[in-house]
């Protein structure tokens, strides 16, 4: 979840699509989507449908952190130790 939080925080306030988020975090779809669902249920992530960029394409879901998610991401970045990230790059 921390990788997703960090990726969304880096892009805030812009939104990011699911596939790009996969590439940015290195997570597979089988890990990313359950995380996004849980984070959305906890009010950390908001999603929005974006108009398709090319004709014939379906609208895509884009994600960004809510105020709660932003606060959590800031906290994780400032104090990685409390999130079990003492060795991680800040």
């Amino acid at each position: 979840m921390l990788a997703v939080l960090a990726a969304l925080y880096d892009r805030a306030p812009q939104r990011i699509h699911g596939y790009e988020l996969m590439k940015q975090t290195g997570l597979k779809s089988g890990s990313l989507y359950p995380l996004l669902m849980r984070m959305s249920e906890r009010g950390l992530v908001s999603s929005e449908w974006c108009e398709p960029t090319a004709p014939g394409r379906p609208p895509r879901h884009a994600y960004r952190l809510t105020a709660t998610g932003l606060a959590l991401a800031r906290e994780a970045r400032s104090d990685p130790g409390s999130f079990g990230l003492s060795d991680a790059k800040a």
């Binding site: 394409r57 379906p58 895509r60």
Partner: peptide, 19 residues
Amino acid sequence: DRCEWAAAMHAEFAVAQEA
């Protein structure tokens, strides 16, 4: 109750297929 997530996955599947 997860149909919105299913639609989101379906849209990203098109992008993943192209890649």
